[in-house]
Nucleic acid binder design. Structure first.
Lengths: 153, 153
DNA sequence: CCGCACTGATTGAACGCTCAACTAAACCGC
DNA sequence: GCGGTTTAGTTGAGCGTTCAATCAGTGCGG
């Protein structure tokens, strides 16, 4: 209020639009590939990945939500779907009676193992193959800076 | 098939996850702010922006879909909502009887004008304020390279 | 140890997006 | 100018996400 808007100059404008176009195209492409080849959206793939990396392939719902950058509600809905697909199962948390543990089933692990090669290949083709090693490094620094900036505020 | 998967090395893995986290956090934040302050999702904001920049504030549906990087179907659904809100109106195309023109109404322009300062401020705060001028330049080059790579394939 | 705020998780409604199917009009070759 | 293909745009069903409301269980102050 009262303070002048700091509009984007032409360079910033160009950067912002390029970023929007590129990140949307990248995500849309990967999402579509994953849906076509493995019948799961990218968000579900990420859930399975995080579970597969966790001790005993299990995580508290809250921790899983945090790890995948999603809301609790979103994760609850997703977990319901994943459970219906037989890819995860839910268990009561032994130390907190409010808590639930999401557990990756063998079927779920197999689905992930089947999906991973194609998806990783997609990430490589659509992202890394297009960039020089220096650009990959720049992208990492930029992304880490942004992630800190966004979650720290 | 038969070809070994080119898995991501640790550096690439870290880059990819940081990118996922950052771009998701950025988009989610901006989307939520826009929804809260201007009662529109980011995709609709972009449609209004493109229309506001077009001659006579009107564009063919196809061109608008292309400009906003969305499918025709998505744009049709969005246009129906925007028309119901009174922000755009649809006219028949004079040169192609299959065509439709989306036209930004005065009400729509006013809604955009009201939303823009807050949104631009958000883009600046959440993105540009966090990066050095060199990083902004790097991000522009990376994004333009990626956009070319993705739409050119 | 009681009351109250907070945390963990789920639910249902509303909404936006995707995909496939469809209509209508334009274009193209002959 | 006729038939087949392509292009423009819409539609409806199904799915995933958001938001607000809700419920159960925990933890803290007094």
């Amino acid at each position: 209020m009262g303070v002048m808007t700091r509009w984007l100059n032409p360079d910033e404008q160009r950067t912002w639009r390029a970023f929007l176009t590129a990140s949307r195209a990248l995500m849309d492409t990967l999402d579509r590939e994953l849906q076509r080849d493995a019948d799961m959206p990218h968000a579900y793939y990420e859930i399975l990945v995080r579970l597969s990396e966790a001790p005993d392939r299990r995580l508290r719902m809250s921790d899983l939500a945090e790890a995948t950058g999603s809301s609790r509600s979103r994760l609850s809905h997703a977990a319901a779907r994943l459970e219906a697909a037989g890819w995860i199962r839910r268990e009561d948390c032994p130390t907190d009676r409010r808590g639930q543990l999401a557990v990756l089933t063998d079927t779920g692990f197999a689905a992930l193992a089947a999906a991973a090669p194609g998806h990783v290949e997609g990430v490589r083709r659509h992202l890394f193959d297009a960039l020089s090693p220096a650009q990959v490094d720049q992208l990492r620094r930029i992304s880490e800076t942004l992630a800190d900036h966004l979650t720290g505020s």
